[in-house]
């Protein structure tokens, strides 16, 4: 706000401008002091180790250390892009990530809104507590439960289908079911957990606004549209932008556990590939190169999304 004032003042010459800035800095000294521990933290624990990114251009040997390992330029990248699997990996990762954003991302918002509409606080708390439990189960457990339900040998669902005279379905082997399962499992595990952040945002809505709207005869849907949604809009946008930063991170463990010989052609993604060729073989430089590629894609997406948000008059993350 003060900034605006300073800019619009026509008499501002360079000297007084700088003086004003000093005055602002002095006035905000507390704010800078508050920032200090955080900045030290980010420099120490995030930026000092950042040289590790350069491993992507070296042939890192742990025994030789960072400095003595030889530079290899773009070798790891050309190996990665030249891998016969590259395009398959890109396609699989892209599709799974898109499924995730299309089908999973909106759900916590919807469930949070529905929870918000519950009239009885008891119901709301009870359901909230139940749906956030799966977040704490490891993927190993979830995948083994999926097996118990969907295998063809005594799986509950297939037994049901067979009992009704249907033909058993190879849910876990058929490549056609793979993406559905991955997305459904994520929805099952994380929707409840994801609602928490939106519920926190909803808690900040001024109840007086609803009362005023009701006086004006607005029905519940209109209240939702004109009061509730705008209140959490910026949270949604920020989360979406941040999510795009990790767009190519599909998660490793779940997919690794769901992969098998029959669905690998649709299931193998960057994260599983880098695990089996890079990490488990101790090829740090190669793993780092793949990671760097993913980060750069994320960076581009984040900035593009941020610009887009700004164009629509949103705050964005920057």
């Amino acid at each position: 706000m003060n900034e605006d004032l300073a800019i619009t003042r026509p008499s501002a010459i360079a000297g007084s401008h700088r003086k004003q800035m000093w005055r602002r800095l002095a006035r905000n000294r507390w704010l800078y002091l508050m920032l200090l521990p955080g900045i030290v933290y980010f420099i120490l624990f995030k930026y000092v180790p950042m040289y590790g990114v350069l491993l992507a251009f070296k042939n890192y040997q742990p025994f030789l250390g960072f400095l003595k390992s030889e530079w290899v330029g773009m070798e790891h990248f050309s190996r990665f892009f030249g891998d016969p699997l590259f395009w398959m990996l890109l396609k699989n990762t892209f599709i799974l990530a898109t499924y995730n954003i299309l089908f999973f991302f909106p759900l916590p918002i919807i469930v949070a809104l529905l929870l918000n509409e519950l009239r009885k606080e008891v119901y709301k708390r009870f359901i909230q507590t139940l749906i956030y439990i799966p977040h704490f189960m490891s993927w190993v457990v979830i995948v083994s439960i999926a097996y118990l339900f969907f295998t063809t040998e005594g799986g509950l669902v297939n037994e049901g289908i067979a009992a009704m005279g249907g033909e058993k379905i190879q849910f876990l082997l058929d490549p056609g079911w793979f993406r559905t399962f991955i997305t459904a499992e994520v929805i099952w595990k994380e929707t409840g957990w994801g609602t928490i952040i939106f519920l926190a945002a909803l808690a900040g809505v001024d109840t007086q606004l609803y009362e005023a709207a009701r006086m004006d005869g607005a029905n519940r849907f209109r209240q939702l549209w004109h009061i509730t949604l705008p209140a959490i809009r910026s949270t949604i946008i920020i989360l979406l932008i941040l999510r795009l930063g990790n767009f190519l991170d599909t998660g490793f463990e779940q997919i690794w556990l769901m992969l098998n010989s029959l669905n690998r052609e649709v299931g193998e993604v960057f994260d599983t590939y880098v695990y089996s060729t890079g990490i488990s073989q101790g090829q740090y430089s190669y793993s780092t190169a793949v990671g760097l590629f993913k980060s750069i894609v994320g960076l581009i997406l984040v900035f593009a999304a941020n610009q887009l948000a700004k164009r629509f008059g949103e705050e964005g993350i920057l």
Partner: peptide, 28 residues
Amino acid sequence: VASGELPSAILVLDQKLPYIVNSVRSGM
């Protein structure tokens, strides 16, 4: 291994991992 603070003996489960082989060859 990378931190350089090695014990007197380390258990290696797969001695054919490239980084182990390379370090052996460089006399570590």
